Simulated assay, not measured.
Amino acid sequence: MTTLIGPDFIALQVRDLAASRKFYLETYGFTAATHCPPGAVIFDTEPTPLALREPLHVLPEAGPLGIGMVLWVACADADALHDLIISRGGVILSPPADGPFGRFFVAADPDGYQITFHTAQSR
């Protein structure tokens, strides 16, 4: 019998890899891994790597990508990250609030992916 373990790698297909890479580094504050394969950027995230990549299939030219997908990214302090993203020109879709996983807010990337950032809870 096969047992599923859980997500092991997350990759978002983007329309403009260079622009999205710059946005995730400069606006969200991610750190890129030292080695990335051609056509992708991998970020130093734990425990699951997060990557951006050139599309494997044709993407719609307009409109948000990732409709229906919810990606939660843990951080040390959601309120501080929220303020930092605003100061860097990022788009906030939902202001900080308390939820079932602690303090969180939702931001949009250049392709319309909605990223939920939340304060990491001790396990």
Rank of each mutant, 00 (worst) to 15 (best):
T119V: 10
A107W: 03
P110V: 01
R15Q: 04
A32E: 11
L71A: 00
R53P: 02
F23H: 13
D8S: 15
Q13Y: 05
A19H: 07
G102E: 06
T119Q: 08
I85L: 10
H82E: 15
P110N: 05
R21E: 05
F117M: 06
C36K: 07
D16P: 01
Y28W: 14
A80S: 06
S87W: 05
A40S: 15
T45C: 09
L12G: 02
P64W: 10
S87R: 08
A80R: 09
E54I: 04
A76R: 14
I5V: 14
P100I: 11
I10K: 00
P64A: 15
Q114R: 11
Q114S: 11
H57N: 14
D109P: 03
F105H: 10
I86P: 00
Y113L: 00
Y113W: 12
F101Q: 13
G90Y: 03
P7H: 06
S87T: 13
P96E: 02
T119Y: 10
P60Y: 07
Y28P: 04
T27L: 05
G89E: 05
D109N: 09
A80Y: 03
A33D: 11
Y24F: 09
P37E: 11
T34H: 11
T3G: 09
V14R: 03
M1W: 08
F101E: 11
G6L: 08
Y113H: 14
F43P: 04
F117A: 02
P95Q: 09
L12E: 01
L56I: 08
F105G: 03
A97H: 12
Q13L: 03
T2E: 08
R88W: 07
F43A: 12
F9H: 08
L4T: 11
T119I: 07
A32M: 06
A18C: 06
S94G: 05
L56K: 13
G63Q: 08
L71N: 06
G66C: 06
L12I: 00
P96F: 05
D83C: 10
R21Y: 00
E61A: 15
L84S: 14
A107R: 07
D44M: 09
A74S: 14
I92Q: 01
P49E: 02
L93N: 11
G66T: 08
A97G: 13
D44A: 15
G90E: 02
D8T: 11
D8L: 07
F104W: 12
P96Y: 04
L65S: 12
G6E: 01
F43K: 12
G68C: 02
R103P: 02
I10H: 00
F23Y: 14
A33R: 11
G112T: 01
V73N: 00
P96I: 01
F30M: 07
F9S: 01
M1S: 13
L56F: 12
D16V: 00
D111P: 06
F9E: 02
A51R: 00
T3E: 10
G90S: 00
I67N: 15
A76K: 15
G63D: 09
P37F: 05
L84D: 15
I85K: 03
D79P: 00
